[in-house]
């Protein structure tokens, strides 16, 4: 049966969307005891793919498997694609052994991005939990690159312990040298820790912003995002001023495998970034 032509299919460079391209590891940094950052460059002479803050790539480790990993680097430097990985499952644990010069497969970038256009002229409250800072870092880079377009920029970042906090040097530098206010907090402080102790939600009542011109972006585990949004709502923020990044099991990243469904949404292509107003009702239902 003849089929009507599909422009996406006949476009050049669109091969099977399931086939990864080889990328070489150009840099590697330990972030903490179980988290590391890999900087990837294409192996061939192809132009680097640009990406939008909040998008992710599928990274393939030869013979082991493939995982979705958020892009954590500067969107102005797509030639060096940073991915911050926490060793949790088989693939990410095996990725811990990767060295500079090794090759991984990459497909992407996929998914929706943080709505930085909608954030213009707004105070932006960035709430991150644990490794949830990684997909927010490209947004912070972007906001700082055109700083004057935005109002007050505040990062509220929580982690288990001071040792779990990612990108600490960069956060300190941003706090000192740019107009990004950084507030860190941990669940358990050590003697050396002089900062906040308590969950990240406890920072929200103390932040200053103009609620009539403010938006919030949240990334972290779902419970943390729900309670952070609740605190922001207590401050008068509407649900459509809040954006969250969802996580679900994912195999294909292109809407074929069905794994990442969240109600009517495919997290891979409709997300991972959603307006909270869209997903809040579903978040209240267990096991969706």
């Amino acid at each position: 049966m003849a089929l009507p032509p599909n422009p996406a299919f006949t476009a050049p460079h669109v091969n099977d969307p399931m086939v990864p391209q080889p990328y070489r590891i150009a840099g590697r940094r330990e972030e903490n005891y179980d988290t590391f950052t890999l900087e990837l460059v294409p192996l061939g002479d192809e132009e680097p793919h640009g990406f939008r803050p909040g998008q992710f790539n599928m990274l393939y480790l030869f013979g082991i498997g493939e995982v979705p990993i958020s892009i954590s680097g500067d969107p102005a430097r797509p030639e060096l694609l940073a991915h911050t990985v926490r060793a949790l499952g088989t693939v990410t644990t095996a990725m811990k052994e990767l060295k500079v010069g090794d090759v991984v497969g990459l497909r992407g970038p996929y998914g929706s991005s943080w709505p930085f256009e909608a954030l213009q002229r707004q105070d932006v409250i960035i709430v991150a939990g644990g490794i949830g800072l990684a997909p927010l870092r490209p947004l912070i880079h972007h906001l700082l690159s055109e700083r004057r377009r935005y109002g007050r920029l505040v990062l509220l970042y929580g982690a288990r312990t001071p040792g779990d906090l990612l990108f600490q040097k960069q956060l300190a530098k941003w706090d000192e040298k740019t107009a990004l206010e950084v507030h860190l907090t941990v669940d358990r402080g050590t003697v050396a820790w002089r900062g906040n102790v308590g969950v990240v939600t406890t920072l929200i009542p103390r932040v200053q912003f103009d609620v009539s011109h403010a938006s919030a972006v949240i990334c972290g585990p779902e419970i943390m995002m729900r309670y952070s949004a609740l605190e922001l709502e207590k401050r008068g923020m509407a649900r459509d001023q809040i954006y969250v990044s969802q996580e679900r099991n994912m195999k294909c990243a292109v809407g074929f495998c069905g794994h990442c469904q969240f109600g009517p949404h495919f997290v891979c292509k409709d997300g991972p970034v959603f307006p909270f107003s869209l997903v809040a009702p579903l978040m209240k239902v267990r096991e969706v």
Binding site: S70, R86, L88, A128, G129, G130, I131, G132, L133, A134, P135, G158, A159, R160, D164, D187, G198, V199, V200, T201, T202, C219, G220, P221, E222, I223, M224, Y227, S245, E247
Partner: peptide, 15 residues
């Protein structure tokens, strides 16, 4: 309420 969330080890799961 905050202490309960703190007990949950909120950031344990990956984002």
């Amino acid at each position: 309420q905050a202490a309960r969330l703190q007990c949950l080890d909120l950031y344990g799961a990956p984002a």
